[in-house]
């Protein structure tokens, strides 16, 4: 007897959107903000493969781990094709290589929390206009499609798509320096506007998660800040960004 009927009911609403967004955040955290486009591309491909494979046999026990593993493998392939393994900072390349090669068995909800917070910093970059920040956040953090964002903005899908393309082009030059506290305030303001927007949207799915993230941004301790020009060191060697208890 097939397990299809049980699996179909287990697929929560907006599952693909949420899980996809989490994996984009994780990849961007480990590969760098300048690889945002790559992260989105491989996650889109991973979701397509999930659609293909899970349709036949149901959703696996740890779907987030499955998606992460597939996305990592696709990212490795893409990076090898580009032959971009040689970074000036060997530490980062080694750490990236280690993370990409590690199996995704231990992926849990907590794994994604810090990476999603980092993703917020990336989306609300001061270089971007407010509409671009919001569009990028809705796309990468919340997993809305350009068409869905267009409906909310009362703009055309083409306009939103262009906005996203420009935002991603800008991101290529970001090495994601850890923002100092002044810049953090600017980003917090934008993030809060985005949260209000998400909450008011009828398509809001996890506004509480986004509000929680904003709260964490607002209570980040000054000791967590670094000079603006310093780039983020490899993930494992740094304490995760957490709010003070």
């Amino acid at each position: 007897m097939s397990q299809q009927s049980a699996s179909a009911h287990e697929v929560a609403g907006h599952f693909f959107r949420h899980e996809g967004a989490k994996v984009v955040a994780a990849l961007t955290a480990h590969l760098g903000a300048h690889r945002l486009q790559l992260a989105e591309d491989v996650v889109q491909e991973a979701l397509l493969r999930a659609l293909q494979t899970w349709s036949y046999h149901g959703v696996p026990d740890n779907p987030a781990a499955w998606l992460t593993q597939v996305a990592k493998n696709l990212a490795i392939n893409a990076l090898q094709r580009e032959q971009r393994w040689n970074e000036k900072q060997d530490g980062i390349a080694t750490e990236r290589e280690r993370w990409l090669s590690a199996p995704a068995d231990d992926v849990t909800h907590e794994t994604f929390a810090d990476d999603t917070l980092r993703m917020m910093f990336v989306c609300f970059h001061p270089e971007l206009a407010a509409e671009a920040q919001t569009a990028l956040a809705l796309r990468t953090l919340c997993g809305f499609s350009p068409a869905e964002i267009a409906t909310a903005f009362l703009a055309s899908e083409a306009a939103i798509a262009k906005r996203l393309v420009r935002a991603r082009s800008a991101s290529v030059s970001w090495r994601c320096p850890l923002p100092c506290l002044n810049r953090l305030s600017c980003r917090r303001g934008s993030a809060e506007s985005c949260t209000r927007f998400i909450c008011s949207s009828t398509k809001a799915t996890k506004p509480l998660a986004v509000i929680a993230l904003c709260a964490r941004i607002s209570v980040t301790k000054p000791s967590d800040s670094s000079p603006c020009s310093q780039s983020i060191p490899p993930r494992e060697s740094r304490a995760p960004l957490r709010c003070s208890p």
Binding site: S2, Q4, S5, S7, A8, V11, H14, F15, F16, R17, G20, L47, L48, A50, L51, W54, S55, Y56, G58, G143, F144, S145, P146, A147, E148
Partner: peptide, 16 residues
């Protein structure tokens, strides 16, 4: 979009 993919997957489930 992710939503469309999920909808399609559920359709295939129901069909099977």
């Amino acid at each position: 979009s992710p939503e469309q993919m999920q909808a399609h997957m559920i359709e295939v489930y129901a069909w099977i």
